[in-house]
Write a protein that binds this DNA or RNA. Structure first.
Length: 735
RNA sequence: GCGGGCGUGGCGGAAUUGGUAGACGCGCCGGAUUCAAAAUCCGGUUCUGGUGACAGAGUGUCGGUUCGAGCCCGACCGCCCGUACCA
């Protein structure tokens, strides 16, 4: 009787697959097509268990579909632009391109032994000029189609390093390298007009039946369609050009509860007043130090500054309200100004309590009204439309009806108009960095901003750059930006901003259908393979990446690069859970931050606890959390493959937990997975040992019951991988 | 802060959707087999008390609805993801 020897079998079959090119995707009119895709990796240098889980999920589906007579496309590539390469360059003095290419080579070497059924002939990296050149072509096509805009946006500015910082590089309001207080600064930047598609991106979510509800809900909330009233306050003795203050509210029915007006520190009126009011200018300056992330802005302590100006209440000209500048008003949403209604909005209430502003309950007559307002409330069911009801004589009514009625009433009186607004903002794609796709436009003194000629694409990144200091190496390169104007032929300057790396990942799935085409896509190939039938990746991409990709598919359709059938790029989406591991640490002499972390292979784990192998010190066993470098709780797939073989790693991540849930990697679990494979091997071996003997009817029956159960469950489940999860549990019960 | 998710034995997880909580698997314990070990096979395994029959407790916490709640409702706690320049 033989034993499973993964070390021999796996390379043997991988070579046979490779030589026969069995995973090469081929169009076949006789077969239904199936495109399965896992979110492509960032080439950090090492694959981790999260990758193994992700690609195994896709691999199971790819193999299943091939086995059931489909023409399958299952490609792999590299999301190769981004900040880590520049950081490595600064840290180690290595060129970002060299670093990235080496990482790709390393990771490919680590992935190959896992035996995924990938069509490697389609591999590309987004830092290939052949790829980003086509992306530049798309940029120009979008520009021509009116899908690109140029406007100003706020960035984090490090005044010491003289560079733009990513939100991630801002720590407690300070630049991570310089430690300088970060400022907000406005730059003119390029935007994709994703808001042109707000309505469609929202409405089409309904059709994405094979997406998780939670992702659809998150996207819907992100797009944030709301119906409200836009109206203007008359500003009493306002400065020139500011006789009126436009505000937008989703709760016009609470208008009589207004006790103040508030504007963003970046609102034009605030800027105007700050010109002559030093204290206000100082206050606004302090607000601008918070940073640009929504999270930072919203969690900051609510602060305000009374401008001394007042506005007239629209329903009562004798009633005036103070105008405050408040740090929790976002210039990006609505009009950058609100009316404050403390009784019915918690943020307004916090603000009113802090600055001693009135709290007026407009639902006092409602049965739900509290005697004293401790927290903002809105009556759940019946609510009187306080300012409308006495005037139009109608009945009390519920939420949205009340709001609609207030809008109708206000419109009838000429007070304002009903407006639909979206929370979604246009997508700013300009980045002041080197390692990204150059934006293919030219700045000419005579002709202004002009697009590059398509025949000049790709606009390549220069290799000879100085990365050792912060800032944009393209901007300080002595010659790269010098060019001639495509229109007048005069001297001109290249755009030195590069594109957001999310652009790279917003169409790679389309490029996989024709990776060598000299246009962004080959219509015939894209028409055959698109859309992606099953997309698999982490839930952390639920909003941005997936929304940008949905936008891109629409924009690519509009510019003739994708068929109408592919405006939704991913027919089905599966979000897998994370791979976790417990942590081992020894607390330092000082505080939390002093902990020393130990990797699983540095620790001897017993029932009683854990000790550091080298020193024999006892280590504290921490909770199982996502594998990460900083906590050192990673298990290298390469080690597992060497120890047990790829099938053990693949089997473990597929069987131990349902794929949509987090899985905890344990040495015992890996061992068990290996044992299970041994059992399967032995079972098959026993049958093979007596090929002429009578068939084992009980076994045959079990096998077919299992197949039946798997098939039934698969077709019943809405998306693929949850079905394949059942394959695991069903097989485990065999015999 | 806001949006989304999760919380059941030592562990992964079941629970036919409001009807015997812990299926199945892992691990562990005991036994068989073996010169011995591995592998394999059999049995046990929520916790507490009890030799035992058995008794009591139990699905993050508190409260509610119900004849009946892991499941429905309300409030809270903890962890995770996202929050538009991390990918």
């Amino acid at each position: 009787m033989s034993r499973l020897n993964s070390r021999e079998i796996e390379p043997k079959w991988q070579k046979i697959w490779d030589d026969a090119a069995v995973f090469r995707a081929r169009r076949d009119p006789e077969k239904p097509k199936y495109y399965v895709l896992e979110m492509f990796p960032y080439p950090s240098g090492r694959i981790h268990m999260g990758h193994v889980r992700n690609y195994t999920l896709g691999d199971v589906i790819a193999r299943y579909k091939r086995a059931t007579g489909h023409a399958v496309l299952h490609p792999m590539g590299w999301d190769a632009f981004g900040m880590p390469a520049e950081n490595a360059a600064m840290r180690e003095g290595v060129h970002p391109g060299v670093w990235t290419r080496q990482n790709i080579a390393d990771m490919r070497d680590q992935m190959k032994p896992l035996g995924f059924s990938i069509d490697w002939s389609r591999e590309f990296a987004t830092c290939d000029p052949e790829y980003y050149g086509q992306q530049q072509r798309l940029f120009l096509d979008f520009l021509e189609a009116g899908l690109v805009a140029r406007k100003s946006a706020v960035v984090n500015w490090d005044p010491v390093d003289m560079t733009v910082l990513a939100n991630e590089q801002v720590e407690n309001g300070r630049g991570w390298r310089s430690g300088a207080l970060v400022e907000r600064r406005e730059l003119t930047q390029w935007f994709f007009r994703i808001t042109d598609f707000s309505d469609d991106l929202l409405a089409a979510l309904d059709g994405l039946e094979n997406w998780p509800d939670k992702v659809r809900l998150m996207q819907a909330n992100w797009i944030g369609k709301s119906r409200g009233l836009q109206f203007s306050f008359e500003v009493v003795d306002g400065p020139e050009g500011h006789a009126a203050l436009e505000v937008y509210t989703t709760r016009p029915d609470t208008l009589l509860g207004a006790s103040f007006a508030a504007i963003s520190p970046d609102h034009p009126l605030a800027l105007k007043l700050a010109e002559t009011n030093g204290d206000l200018a100082t206050f606004a300056e302090e607000c601008r130090r918070i940073g640009t992330s929504e999270e930072a802005l919203e969690t900051a302590e609510k602060r305000g500054f009374d401008t001394g100006l007042r506005v007239r209440h629209p329903l009562d000209p004798d009633w005036t309200l103070p105008i405050w500048v408040a740090n929790f008003i976002l210039m990006d949403y609505g009009t950058g100004a609100i009316f404050g209604c403390p009784a019915h909005d918690q943020r307004d209430l916090d603000f009113a309590r802090k600055y001693d502003l009135p709290v007026i309950d407009v639902f006092k007559s409602s049965a739900d009204a509290p005697d004293v307002i401790d927290e903002a409330y809105v009556p759940p069911k019946t609510q009187s439309v306080t300012f409308v009801r006495p005037l139009d004589g109608g009945p009390d009514m519920t939420g949205t009806e009340a709001i609609d009625r207030a809008i109708t009433f206000a419109e009838g009186r000429g007070l304002g108009e009903g407006v639909t607004k979206f929370r979604l903002r246009d997508w700013g794609v300009s980045r002041q960095r080197y390692w990204g796709a150059p934006i293919p436009v030219v700045h000419c003194e005579r002709c202004g901003v002009v697009p590059e000629k398509r025949e000049n694409l790709p606009i390549r990144l220069p290799d000879d750059v100085d990365i050792s200091i912060p800032g944009n190496p393209l901007a300080r390169h002595p010659t790269w930006s010098q060019t001639t104007c495509p229109v007048c032929g005069g001297p001109a300057r290249r755009e030195t901003d590069t594109m957001d790396t999310f652009v790279d990942s917003s169409w790679y799935f389309a490029r996989f259908t024709s990776p060598d085409a000299d246009t962004p896509t080959d219509p015939e190939e894209a028409g055959y393979w698109m859309t992606v039938d099953q997309y698999i990746g982490g839930v952390e991409h639920a909003i941005l990446h997936l929304l940008y990709s949905r936008f891109f598919a629409r924009a690519m359709h509009q510019t003739g690069h994708l068929p109408a059938t592919a405006v939704e790029p991913f027919a089905a989406l599966f979000t897998q859970g994370m791979v976790c591991h417990e942590t081992y640490s020894i607390p330092g002499p000082e505080a939390e931050g002093q902990k020393r972390w130990f990797a699983p292979d540095e620790v001897k784990r017993t029932e009683a606890g854990a000790t550091v192998i080298e020193t024999g010190e006892p280590a504290v066993i921490g909770p199982s959390i996502k594998m990460s470098k900083s906590k050192r709780n990673t298990v290298d797939p390469v080690d597992i493959v060497e120890q047990y073989g790829a099938d053990t790693a693949r089997w473990f991540v597929m069987s131990d937990s349902p794929p949509e849930r987090d899985v905890e990697w344990t040495a015992a679990g890996a061992d068990a997975a290996w044992k299970h494979l041994q059992r399967v091997w032995r079972l098959a071996d026993e049958i093979r040992a007596d090929p002429d003997g009578p068939e084992d009817e009980a076994l045959l029956r079990t096998v077919h019951r299992t197949i039946d159960a798997v098939t039934v469950r698969r077709s019943a489940s809405s998306s693929g991988p949850s079905g394949s999860a059942r394959i695991s549990s069903a097989s485990l019960q065999t015999r």
